[in-house]
Design a protein around this nucleic acid. Structure first.
Lengths: 215, 215
DNA sequence: GTCTATATCCCGATAGAC
DNA sequence: GTCTATCGGGATATAGAC
C-alpha cells in the first residue's frame, strides 16, 4: 500500500529495472532511512551498507562518495516533495485545490516521514546540496503557482493573500507532522498512523486555511 | 538590543557571574552556534573550542563529554523556547494573546534562529535528550494552556478549536521562519532581518490564525 | 562487480605535568 | 585550571586480487 521504493516513483514505471538499478534502489532506501534519523553526519557508510545488505566497498562502487550518495537520496526526495503541487491549477476552485493539497501533504508526512525529515535536515544545514535547485527550479514553479493564486483572487474566488507567505504556512503546518512527530507524540500520544488522528489533523489544517480564504 | 548570552536570560540577572561562569557562557554560545549549523555530529569539539577560544582539553574540563555539552546547550534553548507561552493567560482576550504570542515567536525566530534550529535538530533526532522534559514538563504546561483555550471557547470569545492542533500549527508556522530560512531566502530573497519582511510575516500569520478564531 | 586489506585522517576522551 | 602528549576507535576512501 504505502510505497517504500522512492526512486521507482520518480523514474518511469514502465522501464524494467536492471539488477544494478535494483541494487541502487536498495542502497538509496537504506541511506534515506539512516540519513533521515541522524542527518548525514549521524550515519556512517558502514551502517548504510549493513542496512542495505551490501559490503561497504560495494556500496562505494555504486556511489563513489558519501556526498554523492547523500545528493542522490536528496534528489529523489525533492522529486517526491514536488508531486502534490500539481493540484494547484487555475482550472480547480481554490478551496478544493487547497484542501486536496493539504490532504496530500499530510499523507506525505505519514507515508514518507523519512523523506520529509531528510528534507528538513538539508534545509537546516543551509541547503548546501538543494540550494541551487531551489533557486533554479522550485522558484519558477512557485512563480507560476503565485500567478494561479492571483487569478483566483482577481476572479473573487478567494480573499487576497500573499501567495508565498501562504505556501510557507502550508508547508510548515503539514510537514510539521513528520518533522516534529516526536514532539507531537510526547504531547498528544498520537501518530498519523492512527487514522482518527490523521483525519483530525487534516480537518484542523484545512479549516485553518479555508477560514482565511473566505472572500 | 538582541541578546547573545543565552544563559544570562535563563539565570538570575542579579547574581554576578564568576570568571568560570563566564567561560561556560562563551563555550555554550560557541556550541550553540556550531551545533545549530550541522547538528551535534556536524560539529567537533575541536571546532567548538576554537570558536570559544579555549583549548579542547579546557573545554572538556568544563563539560566532561560532548553529550553533556549538547544537553547543556539544549536545556538553555528549551528555557528560551518556553518564554512566550506566558502570554497565553485566561485574563487576556484570546485575539490579543494569540497575536502577541505570534509576534513573540516570530521575533524569536529572528533573534534566536540558531536556538530554533538546534531545537528542530533535536526533535528530528527523536528528542533523545529533551524527550523526558517534553513529557514531564511541557505536557503539564500544555494541559494548562488547553484549559485556557477551553475557557475562552466556553465564554464565546473564540470559535471552538482543538488547542493541541492549534498550538502545533502556531509552532510550525512561526518556527518555520528560522528553521526553513534558507528555503525562504531561496524563494523570496527575504530575511526576517528585513523589518518589512518581518512585519509582513507577522501580519500574515496573525491574519491566518485570527480568521480561524472568529466566533 | 565484488572481495580483502589497508591507508589516512580525525574525533572524543584520558594521563599526567605544572 | 590549564597545558602537552597521546591513546583507541571509527570514519571515508583506495589498492589491487579475483
Amino acid at each position: 500500500m504505502r510505497c517504500c521504493w522512492i526512486s521507482s516513483m520518480a523514474t518511469q514505471a514502465l522501464k524494467p529495472l536492471s539488477k544494478a538499478d535494483r541494487k541502487r534502489e536498495v542502497i538509496l532506501a537504506a541511506a534515506l532511512e539512516l540519513f533521515s534519523r541522524g542527518g548525514v553526519d549521524g550515519a556512517s557508510l558502514d551502517r548504510v551498507a549493513e542496512r542495505a545488505d551490501v559490503s561497504k566497498t560495494n556500496l562505494i562502487y555504486y556511489y563513489p562518495s558519501k556526498d554523492a550518495l547523500y545528493a542522490a537520496v536528496l534528489n529523489n526526495v525533492l522529486s517526491l516533495w514536488l508531486g502534490p503541487l500539481d493540484v494547484i491549477d487555475p482550472a480547480n476552485p481554490p478551496q478544493q485545490a487547497i484542501a486536496s493539497y493539504i490532504r496530500q501533504k499530510i499523507a506525505f508526512s505519514r507515508d514518507h516521514a523519512d523523506a520529509s525529515r531528510l528534507f528538513c535536515f538539508e534545509i537546516l544545514y543551509g541547503a548546501p546540496v538543494l540550494g541551487n535547485r531551489l533557486r533554479g527550479m522550485l522558484q519558477p514553479v512557485m512563480e507560476e503557482k503565485a500567478r494561479v493564486f492571483e487569478s483566483w483572487i482577481a476572479s473573487g474566488q478567494m480573499a487576497p493573500v500573499d501567495p508565498y507567505q501562504f505556501f510557507y504556512s502550508l508547508w510548515a503546518t503539514t510537514q510539521h507532522f513528520a518533522d516534529f512527530a516526536s514532539q507531537i507524540e510526547a504531547l498528544s500520544q498520537r501518530t498519523l498512523d492512527d487514522p482518527a488522528f490523521f483525519e483530525e489533523s487534516v480537518a484542523h489544517v484545512t479549516a485553518l486555511f479555508l477560514a482565511r480564504l473566505r472572500p
